[in-house]
Simulated scan of single mutants.
Amino acid sequence: MTPAIVLLALVTAERIGELWLANRNTSALLARGAVEKAAGHYPAIVLLHATWLIGLWLLGWAQAIHLGWLAVFCLLQGLRLWVLVTLGRRWTTRIIVAPGERLVARGPYRFVSHPNYIVVIGEIAVLPLCLGLPWFALVFSIVNGLVLTIRIRAENAALEEARHAATG
């Protein structure tokens, strides 16, 4: 088994675990009266991430791993863990708004509004670079930028709407 296969297997397992966690949290939030917003773009996010991961398996499984980029990727995983721990049961891959809930203002959210998207931007670019696929990193970074532009606008609008509803 090549080091690239080990890396890709770990990332794949992480993604599957995140989907399980996100689905569990989404179900619990919706059961408590939360509402999903702007679901129309979610299939594009799923397609982007699935295509990215499948492409990495197809093109990267036999590649040498660049250790400097791997170190950056590991740092991104530390930031991802910080986001997950900070949001706890509120973390999900969808835009879920819970009426009456205040925005999280601790952890990495003290410094930036959307730290999870910083991680996603980094991962989409850095994992292909770990595998020596700079053109793959560029193409998926551009597509990810377009999808995240839609996503962040939708999320900000949903959060603003929730803020207005909470203040009357």
Rank of each mutant, 00 (worst) to 15 (best):
V104F: 06
G132N: 06
R110K: 15
F111W: 14
A22R: 03
L59K: 10
A38M: 08
K37N: 06
E18V: 00
H41W: 03
L58K: 05
L131V: 00
L75A: 13
K37C: 09
L58I: 02
G168Q: 04
L30K: 07
R32M: 01
G78F: 13
I65T: 00
N25K: 11
L148M: 15
L47K: 03
R110L: 11
E160S: 06
V6L: 10
L47V: 13
E123W: 04
M1Q: 01
V97K: 09
A28P: 02
G122H: 10
V104A: 14
H114Q: 15
V83R: 12
L103V: 03
L103N: 11
P115G: 10
H41G: 04
I118R: 06
A158D: 06
W20C: 00
W69I: 05
A28S: 12
L131G: 06
L53G: 00
A13C: 05
L81G: 01
P3G: 05
H49V: 01
N25C: 08
S141M: 13
V126H: 08
T92F: 03
L129A: 09
R151F: 04
V147I: 15
I142S: 11
A162Q: 02
I5K: 08
E155F: 03
V46W: 08
A50W: 13
L133K: 12
A44I: 05
G100L: 07
N144L: 11
V112G: 09
R80G: 12
I150M: 12
A165F: 05
L75P: 05
A158S: 11
W52F: 05
T12G: 01
R153Y: 01
W61T: 00
L21M: 05
N23R: 11
E36D: 08
L10F: 02
V46K: 05
G107L: 10
R106K: 10
G168P: 00
P134R: 13
Y117I: 01
E101D: 15
A4C: 03
T2S: 15
L7Q: 01
E160A: 07
E18K: 00
L70G: 07
